[in-house]
């Protein structure tokens, strides 16, 4: 055996590593796709948005969702009722945050949890609802 040549054992080990990693890569490739908890959360966010889009505000002509997006004043006026409405609508273990063109409200969003979202278009701009398991 000449000097400088790679040991046969190390070459065999490298081949083995490539083989095992190849199988592991197969697992990650097959299980690609969003986890089911996010689709469930997306559905809940969409449900909440649909209900808000169909309900009028107290004493107003607009739907709650439209009132949130219309102007800063109407946002300030309806944010508290909408917050209560969302808390009643969503299951008790689900928390939410809402972003409108005029500001956000709700719970602070956790950095690591799986978060579902739904964006509802209105004629004054989009309203996004995020939900996650609290």
């Amino acid at each position: 055996m000449r000097r400088g040549q790679l040991s046969l054992t190390v070459v065999e080990a490298a081949v083995g590593v490539v083989l095992v990693m190849g199988v592991a890569a197969g697992f990650t490739a097959v299980s690609a796709g969003p986890p089911s908890s996010t689709t469930q959360l997306d559905t809940l966010a969409h449900d909440a948005g649909t209900v808000l889009a169909a309900e009028p505000t107290e004493g107003g002509h607009d739907a709650r969702l439209v009132a949130l997006a219309r102007s800063g004043e109407s946002f300030a006026e309806v944010r508290t009722p909408v917050r209560e409405r969302l808390a009643a609508l969503l299951p008790a273990d689900v928390l939410f945050r809402v972003r409108t063109p005029h500001g956000s409200f709700g719970y602070p969003q956790p950095p690591t949890a799986a978060v579902g979202s739904a964006t509802m278009p209105t004629r004054h701009g989009p309203v996004t609802i995020w939900v996650w398991y609290g």
Binding site: V10, A13, V17, F27, T28
Partner: peptide, 25 residues
């Protein structure tokens, strides 16, 4: 030395592979 290195490599790869498979499952 080469054998020890090879064993460490293969064992490490096996552990990582099983962890990935478990996560996927």
């Amino acid at each position: 030395v080469a054998l020890v290195l090879a064993l460490v490599l293969v064992t490490g790869a096996a552990v990582v592979g099983v962890a990935v498979a478990d996560g996927a499952l």
